[in-house]
Design a protein around this nucleic acid. Structure first.
Lengths: 252, 252
DNA sequence: CGAACCGTTGAAAGCATTCAACCTCGGTGG
DNA sequence: CCACCGAGGTTGAATGCTTTCAACGGTTCG
C-alpha cells in the first residue's frame, strides 16, 4: 500500500521516471497566475471522473490506488489499469475520458488543467518529452495486456499479474512480499476472469508452493522464476535484433 | 481492399485525419538534405520489422493491409491491430518495437526515420499535434479492445469486429458491404478466439440473417443495428456529462 | 492431377463460469 | 459483551461456452 512507482494501465515494468511531483514542479515554475495544483482527497469508492466526461484535467496520483475501468451496458466491467502514486491519469485522453476513474483506497490526487500542462510543456521541452514517454509506456503496457487477455489461460494471467505487481517494488531480495489493495473482483475484471477463478488460481499456486498468502491482500512470491515461467513473458529478452537486421524489406 | 482510412490497433471509428501522405508532405517541406521518403513494397507474408527491433523508423501504410502482433514463447499469437492505408506504424514505440509488423496483402509502405519525423515535428507544431492525436486515438482504440477481450463473448466480439471494420467505410447506404482481407485465423488472433469459433459465429450470424457471406472475405451487414446491439458498444453515446458534472471530488 | 492452404462443420473434451454454500472478519447495536 | 449482519474470500458441483481434434470441400498453383 506504500509503493510509489507508477502502475499504469497494464502495470509498467520499468520503474524509470519516479519523480513524484513532476507536473507540480513544472507548474510551479510558471508565473503564478493560477493557484498551485489542487490536491483533493478521495474516499475508497469515490469517482474521480466518469467515462465520457469532458477531459479537461490531468490527474497525478499522490497517494492511494485508483482503478480505471469501462463498462458494458449490462454491467460487465473491464478494468484497464490500476494507478499507484506517481501515475498520471487522463494524459492520453482525447476530448473525453475513455474510462471511469475510481478510488480503491483512500487517495490523494493532484489535479492539473490540461491547458496548464500544455502551456508548461511548451515552455519546457523536457516535460513534453517526458509526457510523450509516459504515453508510450502506457501503450507498451497495454500491448502486453492485449496478449494476456487474448491468449493466456487463467494461471498465466494471475502469474503475470503477480509478476507485474512485484516488478514495481524495485527488486528487494526474494521471497518478495506483494500486497494487493484491490479486491478479487477487481483482479478478475482486470484479468478477464471471474473473482472465483482468481481465488482458485491463487489457491492452486499456494498449494504448489509458488506463493504464500499470509492474508488475502498480501502475497509472498516464493518462487519468482517459476512464476515468471508460468507467466510466459519474455520481458527482458536480449537483442534478437542483430539476427533480424538483414532482410528488412526496405533494403531492396 | 481499397479503403483508405486508418484502422489502427483496435479499429478506429472516427475517420478524421484522412490525409494520406501527411508525413511525406511535411518531410517534403524540409530542405532536401535527405532523399524523399522511401516507398518499399511488401509481399503478402513479408515482415516489416520484428518485435524487439530497434524502433528507428516510423512507417506509413500507403497500400495494402498490415498486421501487428505479439507472440507467446509457445507460438500463441495475439494480433494487436490491422493497419490500412493512412495508418502509422511505430509512432508509439519506445526504443524497441512492441509488435511484429507483417504484410497481409501486398503492400506499399512509406518509411521515415524517427529523427526526420521529430525534426519535422519541431518545425511544424501542427504535425506534432497531429501525431499526438494519432497516439491518443490509438490508445482509445486499444481501450475498446481491452473491454472486448476481457468481457465479451464470441458473438459480441465478432459483431464488434464487423461493426468496427464497417465504420471505416464512411457510411454508404446499408446494407453495407465489407471485405476482410485477413484470414479467419487472423480474425481469431485479433479477437482472442480460435479460427473455428470465428467461422462458426459468422455462420450463425448468417443463419440469423444478420449478415450474408457472398464470399469468405466479403461480408454484407444486413442488419447493422442488430449487429450494433449484439456488439454492445455505446460507441457514440451522447453527453452523459452534464448529468455527472456536479459531485466531482475536487470541488470539495 | 496432387499438394497445400483456407474455410466449414461435427463431435468430444476442457477450462472457466455460474450458482450456491460456508467462512472469516469488522462494525454495529441491542 | 455478544449477537447480528454485510462484505469479501474460499470452495464445491454442475453447466456451458469455447476449444480441440478431425474430416471434408473448394480453390490455387506447381
Amino acid at each position: 500500500m506504500s509503493q510509489n512507482s507508477a502502475l499504469v494501465p497494464a502495470l509498467d515494468k520499468q520503474p524509470h521516471h519516479r519523480l513524484h511531483p513532476v507536473l507540480a514542479a513544472f507548474a510551479g515554475s510558471e508565473p503564478r497566475h493560477l493557484p498551485a495544483p489542487l490536491i483533493s482527497r478521495l474516499q475508497p469508492h469515490e469517482i474521480l471522473f466518469y467515462q465520457g466526461d469532458a477531459a479537461n484535467h490531468i490527474f497525478e496520483v499522490v497517494e492511494g490506488v485508483i482503478r480505471l475501468y469501462r463498462l458494458l451496458p449490462d454491467g460487465r466491467r473491464a478494468i484497464a489499469g490500476f494507478l499507484y502514486p506517481g501515475g498520471l491519469i487522463g494524459l492520453s485522453s482525447n476530448h473525453r475520458y475513455a474510462c471511469t476513474a475510481e478510488a480503491i483506497t483512500a487517495a490523494r490526487i493532484r489535479r492539473h488543467t490540461r491547458s496548464q500542462i500544455e502551456a508548461a510543456a511548451r515552455r519546457h521541452p523536457e516535460l513534453s518529452g517526458w509526457l510523450l514517454q509516459h504515453m508510450r509506456d502506457e501503450l507498451a503496457a497495454v500491448m502486453n495486456h492485449l496478449l494476456l487477455l487474448g491468449r493466456k489461460n487463467a494461471q498465466e494471467r494471475v502469474a503475470s499479474f503477480l509478476i507485474a505487481v512485484a516488478q514495481k517494488k524495485t527488486a528487494c531480495g526474494r521471497p518478495l512480499s506483494v500486497d494487493l489493495p484491490m479486491s478479487r473482483a477487481d483482479i478478475g475484471d482486470y484479468l478477464g476472469l471471474t473473482l472465483e477463478t482468481v481465488s482458485r488460481v491463487l489457491a492452486k499456486l499456494k498449494a504448489a508452493r509458488l506463493i504464500a498468502l499470509p492474508a488475502p491482500h498480501q502475497v509472498l512470491l516464493l518462487q519468482y522464476d517459476a512464476l515468471r515461467e508460468l507467466a510466459g513473458e519474455d520481458d527482458d529478452e536480449p537483442a534478437a535484433e542483430t539476427l533480424t537486421a538483414q532482410n528488412k524489406p526496405w533494403t531492396h
